[in-house]
Computed example of a mutant assay.
Amino acid sequence: MTDSDGASGAADEGVRRVVEVRLPTTYGEFRAVGYLDRRTGTEQVALVQGDPAGERVLTRLHSECLTGEVFGSTHCECGEQLAASLRAIAEERRGVLVYLQGHEGRGIGLLAKLRAMRLQQDDGLDTVDANLALGLPVDARDYAGAAGMLRDLGVRSVRLLSNNPRKGEALERYGVPVAARLPLLVPPGAENLRYLRAKRERLDHDLPHLDGIPGRL
């Protein structure tokens, strides 16, 4: 099955490959492979270098973050993690970054994320309690589409760029083995130290670089 751009339809029933195009970036040249997630109707993209088919492929599953990636917010480390992931894949000349739309604010959406940020600033709640105070899940993200995209690209196992063990566990539940999980540590700043501590203490993120840092920077 092919579409008007010549891209083949994905074998995985959950996603369909729609288009593939060369994408030059400041990090190097990637192939942008566009997919439609049949379950959600969301358009997704994977940035690929080299031939990703095979084992132990360097991989990042990156949740969209408008505030951190576009506006440079220092409330989180998302923009820096995205840049570091693309650099790592470019240096290895083989790998995949799956950029996951629909994951804003750990899946609660942009407006809800902004409301949660306001609760953190005004009421002193952490990132977990702010979501709960809004009657929202702590983490609503799903990785079925990401796993389908990786399978379509021929990825059989990954070295996952992530500090979040739960992300690797979710990927394995969808049939993509995690051969290793590689840290993606960003030095904390005054604005995101409390947020990072909540991720470590309440969401099980591995953030050993926070040890020994005083309560305030």
Rank of each mutant, 00 (worst) to 15 (best):
D37W: 02
G50N: 05
P177E: 11
H209A: 05
G105V: 03
L58A: 05
V98N: 00
P183N: 08
Q81G: 08
V21R: 13
T74G: 05
E29P: 15
P187K: 10
H209Q: 14
L153P: 02
L47M: 05
G6S: 06
L184T: 07
R38Q: 13
V158Y: 04
T2Y: 12
A7P: 01
N192G: 03
L111P: 00
A130G: 09
I108T: 10
E29S: 14
A170E: 11
G50K: 00
G95S: 06
S157N: 15
L86M: 06
V19C: 10
Q81E: 10
Y35S: 06
V186P: 01
Y35H: 13
N163T: 12
V57F: 02
E92A: 14
E29K: 11
G189H: 08
A190G: 07
G50Q: 02
P183I: 01
A147H: 10
E64L: 03
R181N: 06
A90M: 02
S4P: 06
T25Y: 11
V98F: 00
A133R: 15
N192C: 08
N131W: 14
L150S: 10
E104S: 04
P165S: 13
H75Y: 10
N163Y: 07
L153C: 06
R216T: 08
L125M: 15
P187T: 03
R151L: 07
Y99H: 10
R200V: 11
A190R: 13
Q101C: 00
E29R: 11
H209V: 09
P165I: 12
E92F: 06
L100E: 03
L23A: 08
L161M: 14
L161W: 05
G105T: 03
I108G: 05
L97M: 10
A32T: 00
M149V: 09
V138A: 13
G109M: 10
L82I: 03
A7Q: 06
R16W: 07
E91V: 04
A53L: 05
E69H: 01
G109C: 07
I89Y: 02
M1L: 03
R115S: 13
A46L: 07
S63N: 02
E92V: 07
Y35I: 14
A144T: 13
R166D: 14
A112K: 14
G168P: 06
L36F: 05
V176S: 06
R197N: 09
I213L: 14
E77S: 04
V18H: 05
G28D: 08
L47N: 01
C65T: 00
V96G: 04
G14T: 12
A11N: 12
G212K: 03
G9E: 12
L82F: 14
A144G: 15
P177I: 12
R87G: 00
A84K: 06
L150M: 09
C76Q: 08
A46C: 14
L66V: 00
S63Q: 02
R181A: 09
G79N: 02
V155D: 05
R181S: 12
G72V: 03
E169V: 14
R194A: 15
C78Q: 01
A11S: 14
H209F: 06
V176G: 02
V18L: 12
G212D: 09
L36M: 12
L203H: 11
H209E: 09
R181I: 08
R151N: 07
M117P: 04
E43P: 04
E77R: 01
E191H: 08
V48N: 04
G54N: 02
Q81I: 07
D204M: 13
V45F: 04
Q121H: 12
G154R: 15
L86Y: 02
G145T: 10
R197S: 07
